[in-house]
Design a protein around this nucleic acid. Sequence first.
DNA 1: TCAAAAGTGTTCTCTTTACACCCATGC
DNA 2: GCATGGGTGTAAAGAGAACACTTTTGA
Lengths: 221, 221
Amino acid sequence: MTYTYEYPHPAVTVDACLFTIQDDRLKILLIKRALDPFKGDWALPGGFVHLDENLEQAVVRELEEETGARGFYLEQLETFGQVERDPRERVISVAYFALAPADHVTLRADTDASDAAWHALEDLPDLAFDHAGIVNKAVQRIRSKVEYSTVAFEFLPPKFTISDVRQVYESVQGRPIDKRNFQKWLMSLNLIRPLSEKRQGSHRPAQLYELDDAKRYRSFD
Amino acid sequence: MTYTYEYPHPAVTVDACLFTIQDDRLKILLIKRALDPFKGDWALPGGFVHLDENLEQAVVRELEEETGARGFYLEQLETFGQVERDPRERVISVAYFALAPADHVTLRADTDASDAAWHALEDLPDLAFDHAGIVNKAVQRIRSKVEYSTVAFEFLPPKFTISDVRQVYESVQGRPIDKRNFQKWLMSLNLIRPLSEKRQGSHRPAQLYELDDAKRYRSFD
DNA sequence: TCAAAAGTGTTCTCTTTACACCCATGC
DNA sequence: GCATGGGTGTAAAGAGAACACTTTTGA
């Protein structure tokens, strides 16, 4: 079956930059392409938008296919439409970024991808298409968003300690943060509630907190 | 002539929110649609992306057709792709916003538009498609961008007074700003250079300045 | 001489930063 | 008892906000 139009139409894809924090490093999910073009190269998960689904639905579908997980924080990043970005035909890609706690995701390769893996940002392989540029933009966006909003909590599981939160900020910003100042600041935001549990370890137990759900995502100011 | 594809393709358009400041108010350029759908309604200027042009080129082309002007500050806003947003076929629209000094633009209606006019934001007519939502997003974006970058200067002509700058900020933010604090802040940024001219009026002449071009667009921090 | 906008400093408040020691647990 | 990360306060500096009068011109 074929589809015919009076004017030429581009193809439209969605691509996702799914980030998580693992081993105190910001990491991104990449898939190894099983098909040409760029067969064997690493690339962002993504695919063509179906005509009967919204853009967000397309990203959610693609991410679910790759990771088996749902319910990521998802936000549109930017649309990339350079004429020559895909050698096959004119392809306009709407890029999204998504955030998830590492344990929320179970990787599974599907038909489009021969492999899927987390990659630390400081150590990325060469990427297919213009995906390196997309990843750059996404990283910039997350770094700045963490400064003026509560997105950082999207990297955390439902129960967490204050040190967990601080480590997220340190991983994203790539620098150490003063423990006392950070705690004071975080508490002044009134975002989190202490639980009656503590986390045990071979040291003093740490108070666990949960995010006040009404405040799950907000900008400061 | 027709165009045939193996899979269905959406149409892709660009839409532009061109803002200016006129009479101390933030205004947006709208065109009155000459054709169905939404014939006779006001809408954002825009049109279909040609397959041999980049997205930015498409916006520049469309704006030039409507206004006869070039060289706007232009930035991608967001892509709108709800399934039902256009009654004709699946249309995905990449929205941009553009800023210009009022005197940079001469309106001219072309074949697609029976009319083109500036509209104050507090007094917008009903808009075609989902354009009201696009305008909302664009206004939010400009308001916040003015706070953390030098975009405001894109509303100003090459020579301006400090009061001119302040009035831009007041118009965008919709509230008065303390004259002394504003001047201190602006000067501390080291963005502008005094000229040897002054602007005359029926009051004390005002020092004219120009923007240091190396600093035309930058974020604070 | 009056109306209109230009130009100019100081004080106070609040926010941000720097910095060091004791605590509770597991081994 | 020692190693590990958890938990806590104060002082100094810097940024932002409040606030009023004199100057220069054209009419």
